[in-house]
Amino acid sequence: MMFLSNSTLGEVVWTQLKFKMNAYLGAVVSLIFVQIIGLIVSMNGNSSTGSGVDNTSFTIITISSDVVFAFVGIWAVFVGKLFTTKAYRYDDFSFVATRLSSNLANFSVLCLMSIFAGVTTFLSNYILRVVLLLVSDVDYVKSVSIFEDPIGTIVNLSIMIILILTISAGGYLWGMLVQIHKAFTYLLILLIITLLVTKTGQTILQYVFIENESIVFLIVKLIALSLVFFLLAILCSNRLEVRR
């Protein structure tokens, strides 16, 4: 008699997710290093505004999370891409997996990592707030803290999380394309340049990032974009065979 065990897709994805959260802890550790480097770079301040009144000149150095975010964004691209490399895909198939379950689990991991990356990027600003006190004698201007502006905190936090998710989903799609053909490696760089340089590209960027009536609209757009990236990646992965 044969006894076949039947697992549902949900069960397998959940098991894979647990497994991946353990196995990919290294990616989270690398995130911490990336953030620390970002913090060191942003110690000089991101922008400063000056003004002179009655023989006194004022300089206000604004320190925001932009630089750290840029570093984390690039980290997100490479983490997304890393998940599509042979080694990572093969690991899945040493256990129970289909391409669909594997992709869903990867996407869930990217979501969780984006949440972690977004929250830590947002909070990393507070490390600077404390560290700068120790290393410099410049006075602080009262700045908005989490407790004073909870709604603003939630909004900014969600934007960061979702932006990181979109970027990592893009990296994931990019990685899948590279797995299909090596030429796609350079396509991303080419695509970024075309987006930035051409008129159409700028129109698209403006449409996505700038022409938003509200933050909610931006968030919805970014989620939709991540889903599109992800669906395309699933389609690509169905062309890939493991352990050829």
Partner: peptide, 19 residues
Amino acid sequence: LRVSGNSILVDDQMSFPDS
């Protein structure tokens, strides 16, 4: 999924995460 859950192929290319 059913085949993957009820079959296994053991070969020298089997890989597991480095971590």
